[in-house]
């Protein structure tokens, strides 16, 4: 199975891979997937895993390169072994698709059969009414329309459309990251999507009715000096990273989004 992990910059793709690599070696109870075989070269995964274990932000993935991560995984319900290919590509490369500039992704020599789209927040377009009228900008030149002027919901829809044109994958999982921030406000990821982007919800229901939605917290919490010890303890107990399904069920099995695509 080839799964493309996509998402705009700083949506937590690399943090997820780092956390996943640890949990595949140290599965929690009832975990859907685990390593069938530890990769012969774990050095790249270590680079992603170490900061996660030390409760530190993972360095941003470098723009311009795609690192393919090949994993041999065992499905624990039936013991079947599955090869999973996950490329680690910088979010800027996905964002550049909207600007017709991401040759890296267009040239990517692979045919993914599934996509995991990571979304950190979905700020809707801002109503003009919400601006303060006294917010006068002293400028004499028309500001240039730029990526930052396109709402997150529209950027994500454009990325989905373009990636599906490039690689007509069959299965889709949408992962709303930093779910530790949202968990008290939304009972499940569908609720979050509906409330923050009706348009994107309509788009997904229309074109990808079988898409799975997940709320994901790979970090487990916002990092601060106060919670380092408790996060380490949670890591040891297998209760740090968590996933919330569309049914609102919380699980410490971080492999659920990946296993839903198999």
């Amino acid at each position: 199975m080839k799964c493309l992990i996509a998402g705009m910059p700083s949506t937590g793709k690399t943090t997820f891979i780092g956390a996943l690599s640890y949990l595949l070696s140290n599965p929690v109870e009832g975990q859907a997937l685990s390593f069938a075989e530890i990769p012969a070269d774990f050095s790249y995964l270590n680079r992603l895993q170490q900061p996660w274990l030390s409760i530190k932000e993972v360095d941003r993935t470098q723009i311009g390169g795609a690192t393919n991560i090949e994993l041999s995984l065992k499905r624990n319900t039936d013991g079947n072994v599955i090869s999973v290919s996950l490329p680690d590509i910088a979010g800027e490369n996905f964002q550049a698709i909207v600007q017709k500039q991401s040759q890296l992704i267009k040239d990517w020599d692979s045919e993914p059969d599934s996509l995991m789209l990571f979304i950190k927040d979905l700020n809707s377009s801002v109503f003009a009414d919400q601006f303060q009228n006294d917010d006068t900008i002293k400028d004499t030149k028309l500001p240039s329309f730029d990526m930052k002027d396109i709402s997150n919901e529209v950027q994500n829809v454009l990325i989905l459309k373009e990636l599906h044109n490039l690689f007509p994958w069959k299965k889709l999982a949408i992962c709303f990251t930093a779910w530790d921030v949202y968990q008290n406000d939304y009972s499940n990821p569908r609720e979050y999507l509906k409330q923050n982007s009706r348009f994107m919800n309509n788009f997904i229901k229309r074109y990808f009715p079988d898409a799975k939605l997940f709320g994901i917290s790979a970090q487990g919490d916002i990092y601060s000096t106060e919670n380092v010890e408790s996060l380490i303890e949670k890591t040891e107990n297998g209760q740090r990273s968590f996933v919330v399904t569309e049914d609102g069920i919380k699980s410490y099995d971080l492999t659920l989004p990946l296993s839903s695509l198999i």
Binding site: S125, V126, A128, D129, F131, N133, D134, D135, T136, I137, K138, D139, T140, K141, L142, P143, F145, D149, I150, S151, V154
Partner: peptide, 16 residues
């Protein structure tokens, strides 16, 4: 989105 951007500029009293 471009048109929304233009509308926002109009409403922000940009002095252009």
């Amino acid at each position: 989105e471009r048109r929304s951007f233009l509308r926002r500029l109009n409403d922000r009293n940009i002095e252009i």
